[in-house]
Design a protein around this nucleic acid. Sequence first.
DNA 1: CCGAGTCACTTGTACCTACAAGTGACACCC
DNA 2: GGGTGTCACTTGTAGGTACAAGTGACTCGG
Lengths: 165, 165
Amino acid sequence: MEPRWLSADEMTAWVRLVAVVELLPGVLDGQLRRDAGLTHFDYFVLAMLSEAPRRTLRMTELATRTNATLPRLSHVVRRLEERGLVERRPCPSDGRATNARLTDDGWATVRATAPGHVATVREHVLDALTPEQVGQLAEIAGALLGRLDPDGRLAAVYGTAAPGR
Amino acid sequence: MEPRWLSADEMTAWVRLVAVVELLPGVLDGQLRRDAGLTHFDYFVLAMLSEAPRRTLRMTELATRTNATLPRLSHVVRRLEERGLVERRPCPSDGRATNARLTDDGWATVRATAPGHVATVREHVLDALTPEQVGQLAEIAGALLGRLDPDGRLAAVYGTAAPGR
DNA sequence: CCGAGTCACTTGTACCTACAAGTGACACCC
DNA sequence: GGGTGTCACTTGTAGGTACAAGTGACTCGG
């Protein structure tokens, strides 16, 4: 089988996108690790909790929102718990479930870390684009998510409605 | 310090971009791992070699093109060498350097793997976009790379874009 | 109830990556 | 032409992620 190859325009877009996907995590991880001793995934976990009602989420829900497997999340939350940023309690209404809650220390950490993180995002991404391009990027990324996340598992995070479903 | 926060449009674009960056590597890795037993980074290393003259590159050059640290590349190439896909030889002109060359087996592996990889890229990325959006994506990603890769270390890959193969 | 099946999570093992230290090889300079 | 410093890599060790198996808790048919 021989699928149609990529045109020059497609190749350019694809190769650059791959480069971005390769470089961006390192930039984010580096800044957060230096400034707060957190990996980007750690920060994302804390951020998801900070936006949840009562700063609490069930492990399963937290796993889908962070696109993590349950074992991975379990390990990460255990480490965050050892640092006092998160606490786990058995869910009163379902004995199988565990609720993860952001502690006051964790909340303070998020508030202290967010400005530097936002500054990094501005510096390396948003400020490089025109307002028009920001809109185009939202459209394009939305379209990609329709393919990358057809079940909408992350839809609760990235907002409303991929057009694909 | 309080940097200006993100506008609603910026937040949408950013959150979606993060989701893409989070999901895309998993999709690429999964397909390549299932079909060829290669990680996306492995494949990228082989692809870079396959496009180089005489299918040979010095380790340092290969590291910059793949955005890898030298230790990481050293481990990966050792494993690829154990599988017979790559071979290493001391550089005759500089005793410090090592040349990595794609073997015939490695070349065959790349040729056998590329179509499935391209199909995945089409399915999950390019076919989700209009031709106009493909152009916009190239522009946007190019702008981001100006910030993410200011020294142009990866420019040899995404810049000239060598659409030949 | 009671047993099979599923769910929600935890633990254990293997792999991969990052960081730090070590080994030759080259370059320069007096 | 030794001494110093840098370069190009390799090796060793620690930390994080993925996959597989295990443990209680719920559900539902009989």
